[in-house]
Design a protein around this nucleic acid. Structure first.
Lengths: 244, 244
DNA sequence: ATCAGCGTTGCGTATTCTGCAACTCGAACC
DNA sequence: GGTTCGAGTTGCAGAATACGCAACGCTGAT
């Protein structure tokens, strides 16, 4: 494991909490100023950090340029965006878009409930497959071989008492998802959150993404969330149509 | 400058464009696989990168979280954001925000004209100083010493026939910019694009950023673009006021 | 005017990183 | 089913690289 890199990452993490001076960083890491300076210089050259006129260091623009570039790579995102916005405005709830990539369900876009603003924090991060609506939708759509492989390899972390914790329970659940054409998450990831999700399909009927709506139970109980299902299905249908 | 760190940053940059395999990264950097592996391991431990079950590497959750932090910590950007959105909606045109960082004019935010969707493509990239509105605004605001140093060192790449191609022409132009309080780009960067830009100033009158509006000439001719000037100046004035 | 605090530089040392070679694992192909 | 190819992983010895020291310079405060 690379020492200097490791220290550089610590620096970035520290800068994530706020701006720092050289000495501050040096004492924080417990290394000499010189060392920190060299690392900062390297990162500054690539714009991963910048420093303002008062010699205080901050995170650089390269960082968000990178994240944006990575997030923009999914084609589904572009097509889905306007529809997601509509769904978000109609329901007033948090909307997620996820896509299947190399054995994972990746969040590709997210629209928050409050203020209809994008909250990116989770975008680019994989979703749990056994306890999220999008995870179930995408996993259910995989070919049987791969599905079984995933079922066998999952860790089934029990986030809440409701979480499905074994391959058998999840297999049944997935069968249900395929039969219904949509999935639920009844407080399985966060005990106070209920979600419903549905697939986006291309012209060949292959599932290329999943959309979900998440609602905290203080706002709507589970039955009320189900009333949003028609809206959700209309949205995924529209996206699927546009996708071709 | 730290070699290993520098290579690690190259890796991140590459992963920003898409997922990569170990060998792919090794050949891209021109170093041994072992070296890349060690770097990746260190970054993986801190979740700056992760790999899926097919051994393909991609950016990790920590990086996305940091990117969001970087965005929020960019004061000018945060303050300007709502105003830029307004300007974008009122004019319907592409709006850029740039800031002077490390001796360059960096695009920090961008709102696209055609769709409601954000196109981040240019964010984090430096703007040409001799042929963009924001570049001129920011360069014009630099102290004379530094300004002259830049004037002498620029390459004056002639993107179009309209591009200013020498230090003398640019110096005159900058004098005009300071006198007027705004800058233009009459097809100097892309022949079919006209832009106007204006500075954001802090309480001490120091220029901390620049906003520009860009319009393709198929939509508006140059005189019509100038009619947007009051809107632009109102925006920069409002941002400047909020900045304090 | 002096001092304190902080960032910066040059340099010798040894720690850390590097690349080689060999090994493992899995898939693909005959 | 055996073989070969591709890709990732490990141990190791040499050497380049990163480290910390000490001294310098700058800026702002007392």
């Amino acid at each position: 494991m690379s020492q200097s890199l490791s220290r550089a990452l610590q620096i970035l993490a520290s800068l994530g909490e706020g701006d720092r001076s050289l000495d501050q960083l040096a004492t924080e890491l417990g290394v000499h100023k010189t060392t920190v300076l060299r690392l900062l210089r390297t990162m500054e050259a690539d714009r991963f950090v910048r420093r303002d006129d008062q010699h205080r260091y901050r995170l650089g623009s390269r960082l968000f340029a990178l994240a944006d570039a990575a997030r923009e790579q999914h084609v589904v995102r572009e097509v889905a965006a306007p529809h997601l916005r509509q769904l978000n405005q109609k329901t007033g709830q948090t909307v997620h878009l996820a896509a299947w990539e190399n054995g994972e369900a990746l969040y590709v876009d997210k629209l928050d409930s409050v203020r209809t603003v994008r909250m990116y924090s989770q975008v680019g991060v994989p979703a749990a497959l056994h306890c999220t609506a999008v995870g179930k939708v995408l996993l259910a759509a995989q070919p049987k071989r791969q599905r079984e492989a995933v079922l066998a390899s999952l860790e089934y972390h029990a986030y809440t008492p409701q979480t499905l914790t074994g391959p058998d329970a999840l297999r049944d659940e997935l069968d249900g998802v395929r039969a219904n054409g949509w999935a639920q998450d009844k407080g399985e990831h966060e005990s106070f959150m209920n979600c419903i999700g549905a697939p986006i399909v291309d012209h060949a009927g292959r599932v290329v993404g999943a959309v979900s709506v998440s609602v905290p139970d203080v706002l709507l109980n589970y039955e009320q969330v189900l009333e949003l299902l028609p809206e959700l299905l209309a949205t995924t249908k529209a996206i699927s149509a546009d996708y071709n």
